[in-house]
Design a binder for these strands. Sequence first.
RNA 1: GCGCCCGUAGCUCAGCUGGAUAGAGCACCAGCCUCCGGAGCUGGGUGUCAGAGGUUCAAAUCCUCUCGGGCGCGCCA
Length: 551
Amino acid sequence: MESSELVRDALAAAAAAAGVPVARDDVMIERPDDPAHGDLSCNIALVAAKAAKRNPRELATAIIERLSLDPAFVERVETAGPGFINLTFAHAHLVREVREIVRLGSSYGSSGAGAGRKLQVEFVSANPTGPLVIVSARAAAVGAALVNIFRKAGYDAEAEYYVNDAGSQVAKLGASTLARFRQRLGEEAAFPEDGYPGEYLIEIAGEIAEPEGRAWLALPPAEAVPAFGRFALERIIGRIKTDLERFGVKFDRFFHESELYAGGGEIWKTLEELEAAGTVYEEEGARWFRSTDLGDEKDRVLVRSDGSPTYFLADAAYHRNKRARGFDQVVDLWGPDHHGHIKRLVSATRVLGAPAGWLEVIIVQWVRLVEDGAVVSMSKRGGEFVTLGDLVDDVGVDAAKFFFLMRKTSAHLDFNLTLARKESDENPVYYVQYAHARISSVTAFARGEGVAFPEDTSCVERLRETEERDLMRRLVVFPELVRVAARTRDPHILTTYAQQLAAAFHKFYHVCRIVSNDRSLSEARLLLAEATRVVLAESLRLLGVSAPEKM
RNA sequence: GCGCCCGUAGCUCAGCUGGAUAGAGCACCAGCCUCCGGAGCUGGGUGUCAGAGGUUCAAAUCCUCUCGGGCGCGCCA
């Protein structure tokens, strides 16, 4: 069991023995940053004080008197401040953990917290009508990190991209591409009012073989437009996949909206189920979903008066399909412009039989690119955008991902391009990677000096300097942090952690010379460095960032 | 107008379920390599936590209102 859980149980038991009633869920175990507050800190006495109508410091003392903990685990327990109970790990405990990290390697921090629950993370899912823009790039970084974190926390997690390859935007895309193709042939072709004006469609129109394109033009418009649309769609999806691959983001599946129309037509099956539940009515020739019954602001159209299904019905069918595939839970990452769609879709999944909480929607907030202190305009005239590909060309994959993950997913992000480009200590991603490279380098140096990882790791016992202890207490937080990141569905705490861990290592390195004449001390420090390398590498891996051995 | 998110140091942001003296990085200044990677380390100081009330032993955190910013409110996706 995790150390904080052990302590929580012991404290709850001691409180009970002292006749202090307190709900276990109210008992909070913190990991104070300040070592003066111990390695673990608990508010149990403060929480219990109210109900017991007693002074919290007195209660804390009473609880401590009845507290039973292995002295090889916790060596000191004291009351502090208004009534906190602060606990300090025994040196032996930290030593045991460091040896464990070295022994386990990259599996350190893995847990069964998710109990193998089948969980799907759907992200990016940008319309294939143009290249991926920055907010999609952020979603890609967050989604990929979440999948890694979920897997490490014991979930059976899958990454999925929903490709909207049906519906009206494909027609628009087709009309736009058709116009670009005509223009290429030197014809006067008016560009559609609501078309996609980006340069990329000119390029794509240029990729159409001329005889083929002319043959499409000869078709009646009802066939010509979809022909151009399909071509453009395929090319754009290809580019999106290439960009994502370059970004190091892998999907287990690309689910195409068109699949919902194929075969028996899951779309219509979904409509039937909603109707059977009595949540659909007809008005002005359209079919509406009574989402107001479930807290939405207004009812939503499922089928237009011309008989075509809306995006919303397709989305409901898509989520019904996810349920049928047996996911215990699904997490969707959406852009901030889709915020208003959460209620209606959650309502629809509930009507279709999903339990409360089955669908979780996380809004990935906007990103502003900032260069030399000024906001970079994301949308230049003519519909050109800064794309994922542009960003990767500019700052590189590692910096892009790390910066996207430095902030809470739900918070707006100012992406500092000037800082991200720098290959120096000012840039947090280099700072962390440098620590990893330094450890790799020192390990190689040590080997040259005849110092290697010893078979018997009991020498770790000798690490008693302040900087060594600070580093150790940081290392042992990692497993808990992975679970917190999984629970809160937010990778950003790991980004912060990696920076703190790197800082603790640099301090240790500066003060404690690793390779010295003292053989067993050298080995002990080498093992501590290795434990740090393992945890840094694993943190970076979860974030999707590389952990280089040389820079 | 209605709804959601946000407002913490000069800048970008942490602050976990309400807890201890509100913390980092950047920027600025001054130091530290005969020694394992100086892409590093050590010092130096800044806050009406947007404002006003309220709840609480305890509020940046919860509630109400005000101000300021972002987004949404389509038979588009």
